[in-house]
Structure formats: structure tokens, C-alpha cells
């Protein structure tokens, strides 16, 4: 049947591209899932038409790597929502979304999933529905849960990499420790006002502990949380998504050292690389 599916996809392809209509026909004819069809498309040397604009950039092998990747996004508010959107559109195969919150009116200025109609709904469920509408091939696991270090092993198990979409220093330090213990790459991002930062904590490294060296202050109450704009949040989330895609596409390349500081008032992006020792 794999040969038959393959043959069908080859006959349906135009210029090597398989369109969504052909996926739907293949699903009806062969009773296979979207990810199975996508794997067959790529294995046959074809490319999904949805990804035509990234065909030369990623190639078959790169797209297959994205499809095989499992990314866990911890925190699905400002940063996390935009990262989920970008990774889903790129074709990351599995996304696990972790966030305990529901959308609030005060999220509308910057959080991608927030709409008037969805106020009060769990963020992870709204984002899962959005991903299903944008790219049904992506398998999403929404978990309406708070990330806690003592539950970290089961929450992060099986991940290719982890995205930091949290909103407090204390929670980030917990996530950094957990990823270090599990030897998982962690793509960090944080924002405040017109500024932001992004970095990759390599497996086993302690970058977050270096970035937040002072004792963590208790989380500020919601009304005193840092000022935050979509123009800045989406920029930092894009940096995180790009770092994540690079890590999945070229795992053999070393992670970029240090961290990136973004200033959107200047504007400028500066790489900070402290001396060793």
C-alpha cells in the first residue's frame, strides 16, 4: 500500500509539488493520517505545495527533520504563541503546548492566540485549534498545566528541544535546571518594554543560571508585570523560532554561544559572548 500511496502522490504532483487537495484524496483512498501522507510525499522526493516557498531553503532532508521533530513550548502567552505559529507553519511535526492560563482581555495587545471570541478559553486549546487550521499535519498535544520542576521530567520527556515562553525569572530558572538535567536544548527568550533577549542553552549547559545570576525575586503581581508590546514580543519569538529551526535542521552545528540582546528603540541586535572562566 505504501507503493500505491507513493504512486498516487507522484501522479498527483505538479512540478514536484503535492497540493492539499491531493492530501485529502489520499486520506480518503488509503485511510492514512496527515503525517503519514506527508512522510510519503517527502520520501517520494516530492514536496508539499504548502512549503513551496521553503523548498530550496530546507530541501527534502530538512523538511523531514522538521516533520520528525518534537518541540515542547513551555508558556503559551506572548512569546510562546508566536513561536507556535512560526514552527507550525514551517512544518514541525509535533508540538506539546504547556500553559495553565486562559486568555484575558489584557492579553489582546500582544498574544497571537488572543481574540475577543476566545477570552476565558485555555490558551493551549485555542492555539491547538489555530495550528489545526493552519497546518493540520502538525500533531499538537495541549496540556493546561503549570510547568513545575518536580514534574519536568514527564512534561519534557521525548522532546527534541524546549522553548522558554515563560514570564517570570523564577520559572525560567526552574526550566533551565530541568533542561540541563535532561540534556535537552532550551531556546530562551524574554522581553521588557522595547527590549528583549534570546539564546540557546546547549544540552547540559547552565546558561539561564548565568543570565539570571541574582537570587530570583518573587513573581510580581500581574498588574506590575513588565510592559510588553506585540512589536517586541513577535521579534523575540521570531529569534527563538529561528534558533529552534537551526537547532533542528543542523544539530551537528554547535549552538551559538552567549546570548542576543535586542533594542528596538535604536534599533540594534547585539551578541553578548562572555569570556570563558
Amino acid at each position: 500500500m505504501a507503493d500505491e500511496l507513493s504512486g498516487f502522490l507522484r501522479s498527483a504532483a505538479l512540478g514536484g509539488l503535492v497540493d492539499w487537495q491531493s492530501y485529502e484524496t489520499a486520506a480518503q483512498l488509503f485511510g492514512v493520517s496527515w503525517p503519514e501522507i506527508e512522510r510519503a510525499v517527502l520520501a517520494a522526493g516530492l514536496f508539499p505545495r504548502r512549503y513551496a516557498a521553503q523548498r530550496r531553503l530546507l530541501g527534502q532532508e530538512g523538511q523531514q527533520r522538521l516533520l520528525a521533530a518534537r518541540v515542547t513550548v513551555v508558556g503559551c502567552g506572548g512569546l510562546g504563541g508566536w513561536v507556535v505559529e512560526i514552527l507550525a507553519r514551517a512544518g514541525v511535526g509535533r508540538l506539546r503546548l504547556i500553559d495553565p492560563d486562559t486568555f484575558d482581555e489584557s492579553n489582546l495587545n500582544r498574544q497571537l492566540g488572543a481574540t475577543i471570541a476566545d477570552l476565558g478559553r485555555p490558551k493551549v486549546e485555542v492555539l491547538a485549534a489555530r495550528v489545526a487550521a493552519v497546518n493540520p499535519v502538525v500533531q499538537v498535544t495541549p496540556l493546561a498545566a503549570t510547568f513545575r520542576e518536580d514534574a519536568g521530567d514527564s512534561l519534557l520527556a521525548g522532546s527534541t528541544l524546549v522553548i522558554d515562553g515563560l514570564d517570570t525569572v523564577a520559572a525560567r530558572l526552574e526550566l533551565g535546571r530541568c533542561c540541563r538535567r535532561l540534556a535537552l536544548p532550551l531556546v530562551h527568550g524574554a522581553v521588557e518594554g522595547w527590549y528583549g533577549q534570546a539564546a540557546v542553552q546547549a544540552p547540559g549547559a547552565a546558561l539561564l543560571a548565568a543570565i539570571y545570576p541574582q537570587p530570583a525575586a518573587p513573581a510580581p503581581p500581574a498588574e506590575s508585570r513588565p510592559d510588553s508590546l506585540a512589536a517586541v514580543v513577535a521579534n523575540v519569538a521570531s529569534l527563538q523560532a529561528a534558533l529552534a529551526l537551526q537547532a533542528i535542521l543542523a544539530p551537528e552545528d554547535p549552538f551559538p554561544p552567549g546570548w542576543l540582546m535586542l533594542d528596538l528603540r535604536e534599533p540594534e541586535l547585539e551578541r553578548i559572548v562572555p569570556a570563558a572562566g
Binding site: T168, R172, A190, E192, Q214, D227, S228, P274
Partner: peptide, 29 residues
């Protein structure tokens, strides 16, 4: 806190010609 690119604490003594970089905790998301 970095002095000449190295992580330091607040009690680090500065010398003529040093470069000191100071970062706030950026923690929002």
C-alpha cells in the same frame, strides 16, 4: 555584570581603562 567580558560580582574592583557592561533582568514573556 561583566568587566572586560568576564562575569563579576558587585564587589569587583574596577581599574583604569576597564569596560563594565551592566544588564537588567529581562523576565517578561
Amino acid at each position: 555584570l561583566l568587566v572586560n567580558g568576564r562575569h563579576v560580582e558587585l564587589d569587583q574592583e574596577l581599574r583604569e581603562g576597564d569596560t563594565c557592561a551592566i544588564f537588567p533582568k529581562v523576565g517578561g514573556g
